[in-house]
Amino acid sequence: MRHEDIIVQEMIEADRFVLRPCRKSDAGLIAMYAGDDRVARGTRAMPHPLPPGSVEAMIERASAADRSEDVWVIDGSAHGHAEALGLISLERMDRAQSEIFYWIAPAFWNTGFATEAVRTLIAANPHKSDRIFAEVFQDNPGSARVLTNCGFDYLGDAEAFSVSRGATVPTWTYTLKQGS
């Protein structure tokens, strides 16, 4: 008997929430928070306004067997918080390297959720990465603080295209060497 190959994406426990894979029922809550321009401006790929169906498509993509990016919902429902506080994801690059992405809904900013989520995810290291990259726009120093709080080292300046801004925006790049 043969089983299909399934990439197992583990649930990861933190103190104030769990990181769990996306489900279809997350679409409404994610669309509500991701529709906020303050979120979209901080990301490369999220358009603003958010076209109908794009969150459903993201969830579909995050559930595909051949995906390159694993997405976790930051789910605080077991701890009296919202069911989706934000998203955090790891995209596989080549040679045991991954890039980390995250956003927290503006309603929950300045509460340390991002730092806790990043710290939890890199401790679990689900991709068994040797090195993790991250990049923030230079007008988003709060996000950069999350990375330095978690032990990331500044690598250098670069620039990335932001879909919601329709422009190439200067970035700071960070990297974390795992197991050092």
Partner: peptide, 17 residues
């Protein structure tokens, strides 16, 4: 040109723009 990133160069062995 539309964006500039760091990537690890296999030959050079270090992240490179």
């Amino acid at each position: 040109h539309w964006q500039t990133h760091y990537e690890a160069s296999l030959a050079r062995g270090i992240p490179t723009l």
